[in-house]
Design a protein around this nucleic acid. Sequence first.
DNA 1: AATGATATCTAACACGCGTTAGGCAGTCAA
DNA 2: TTGACTGCCTAACGCGTGTTAGATATCATT
Lengths: 229, 229
Amino acid sequence: MRTQSKVHAARTGGRVMPLRRTMDTRERVLAVALPLFAERGYRGTSLRDIARRIGIKAPSLLHHFPSKQQLYIAVLDQIFEGMEAAAQRIANGKGTRQERLVRAIKDAIDYIAKHPDSMKLLWKEMAEENGVGRNLLKRRMPPLDAIEVNFIFRGQREGEFRHEIEPFHFIQSLHSITIGYFGTAAMIKRLWNVNLLDPASIERRKREVVDMVERTLFLKPSGVAAPSH
Amino acid sequence: MRTQSKVHAARTGGRVMPLRRTMDTRERVLAVALPLFAERGYRGTSLRDIARRIGIKAPSLLHHFPSKQQLYIAVLDQIFEGMEAAAQRIANGKGTRQERLVRAIKDAIDYIAKHPDSMKLLWKEMAEENGVGRNLLKRRMPPLDAIEVNFIFRGQREGEFRHEIEPFHFIQSLHSITIGYFGTAAMIKRLWNVNLLDPASIERRKREVVDMVERTLFLKPSGVAAPSH
DNA sequence: AATGATATCTAACACGCGTTAGGCAGTCAA
DNA sequence: TTGACTGCCTAACGCGTGTTAGATATCATT
């Protein structure tokens, strides 16, 4: 009845014939849906909202996605795709574990700063107990976390990181601090008229997080960004 | 038309005659609505859901609250009421600034651990840009934050805290770490089968946060909970 | 030129929602 | 006893939602 799978196949393989420029509607939908879901949540965003922003009617959306749930999952999946790519880019570093971690944090914050909507949506999704993205989160989150936890764990075995630190807790704290910073930036702008997203604030933020990590995790601070020790 | 104000007045003043035991329905509603809003969000919770849990019908709720919005705001307000009371209890400490801060953190975590639903709802509300609680948040959040920011600021002027720390950023990080811990506990339980809310984990968490604060904020660590320095 | 697929449209459906109207039993003060 | 009031009920309204059905225009392929 629904021709969704065919549509998707046509889009995937259709890159050979880019003559139809309407073919990237699917991507326009994803691009427009992300900030809407991020700001108003899954239930607070209607298909009619999304459709209006790209100039079509709601039922037309369902020619590109089989349902609202699947559209949302596609948005979420795209976020994880980006995060995974960024993680792989970051993982291939040289130098000591301490240097690599400092660089990874800076790169991660830079990446996140470019995708604040993604973080806001993630922030929302993580609090959702029985949300639509439940299964996707369960599938894609643990591998990402595990990479980082193992990194800390190995650093401890090799004598670079403090043994008092519980790697899993530490990583969760790092996530909370970072996602929290970007997930609440809009609220803080509203409440305090302070813009956490301008470049200067983000640079300072990088220094703060690195400083925190060096002081709490490192056995011997590398001194990269910790003045007046 | 609506007799809400009279109902409220009757309840408030009605404490003199506690013969009617049905009078505390309003409080039962609040108690039941909090975990529902915390888990499913404002839009995800219907008045019929709330009503069913206390054994009445949805329209009857509106004899105790003028609308769903006002019911939600009452729930949120109750959370802030509790936090403000806890904050005042914590503020009256003795000793050095460092000792008082360490004690305040432990007390705050203890308090929050007893109200994980409140933190989860707060976590949700903070990400909501144009949510129902917008005005309430704007009214009640800054004073609470300001107390803490000023505490850090004074500590810096008096030479107990590092000057490199930006008080506002630091407090936001502390909030993110703490709210994040409790706001995502359910998700972590689901993803990793790790229960962050059992007493042992919470005790460890207190030590971790205190350790982090001592190492990043204190000029001279007090040594209260920082072994193997 | 004919065919078939694609992307959009309009119309409409069933559902759940917050809310309103109006009724009824029990309680309390006069 | 009366009369007002409280706390709950049932019935129902209007609205917005996700989704379906079916028609139409566009365009590549045959």
